[in-house]
């Protein structure tokens, strides 16, 4: 019973974290929320994996947030934002409304997934779908490298919760960790690209 309550708690936290990610503009808060998000991801993953294997996700997520944070902290604020990132509505009301619509979508779709994936619980499915859809929303709202990479990490975190229920191979865990870290490194590279004269690259 307690286990289920904690799982639902983690799912609610995931929704709160992703909504905050969508609304926050300060990169420090964004990365803190990303790191916090991985605690809930860890909890929902360890339901199907061993704690040690689920901990890989937590550590990888935190490492990704750290890599992005270290890179972002070295940047001049003017250089770190994309100049043409205003093609979509930026208002908070719009974002909250979209997030609510997504929540309704997740709430209506989640109950059908456990039929497809036997053994998976509703909290994991809800948490996973929340992360995936909110990740997609983040990707649709920006072209800034930092936010795009955070959107992709969020989306993948959601997928990993769902996939943990069907696949528990060590190689998969290792490759997914490599991809998460790789995404963070790519994000760092894209954040740094074009910010200083790096000389000839040929």
């Amino acid at each position: 019973m307690n286990f289920l309550v904690i799982s639902w708690g983690a799912t609610i936290l995931l929704f709160a974290f992703t909504l905050s990610l969508l609304l926050t503009r300060d990169w420090r808060w964004i990365l803190a929320l990303l790191a916090a998000q991985y605690i809930a991801v860890f909890w929902l993953t360890q339901i199907h994996w061993t704690v040690s294997m689920a901990a890989v996700k937590l550590v990888t997520g935190w490492m990704s947030a750290t890599v992005l944070g270290i890179t972002r902290s070295t940047l001049d604020p003017k250089l770190a934002s994309a100049p043409d990132d205003n093609s979509w509505p930026q208002g908070r009301f719009f974002r909250i409304l979209t997030a609510m619509l997504i929540f309704l979508l997740v709430a209506s779709a989640a109950p059908s997934i456990p039929k497809l994936l036997p053994g998976i619980g509703l909290p994991e499915v809800t948490g996973s779908l929340t992360l995936m859809t909110m990740g997609l929303l983040m990707l649709g709202l920006t072209t800034q490298p930092l936010r795009v990479v955070i959107g992709l990490l969020t989306l993948l975190a959601g997928f990993e919760i769902l996939y943990a229920a069907v696949e528990n191979a060590t190689l998969v865990a290792a490759l997914l960790a490599v991809i998460n870290l790789g995404l963070a490194l790519v994000g760092s590279y894209l954040l740094l690209a074009g910010t200083e004269d790096t000389g000839g690259s040929r």
């Binding site: 994309a82 072209t143 490298p145 590279y189 894209l190 740094l192 690209a193 074009g194 910010t195 004269d197 790096t198 000389g199 690259s201």
Partner: peptide, 9 residues
């Protein structure tokens, strides 16, 4: 994406 150029869309 070359390091000397800002990433595009």
């Amino acid at each position: 994406s070359p390091p000397e150029k800002k990433p595009g869309r």
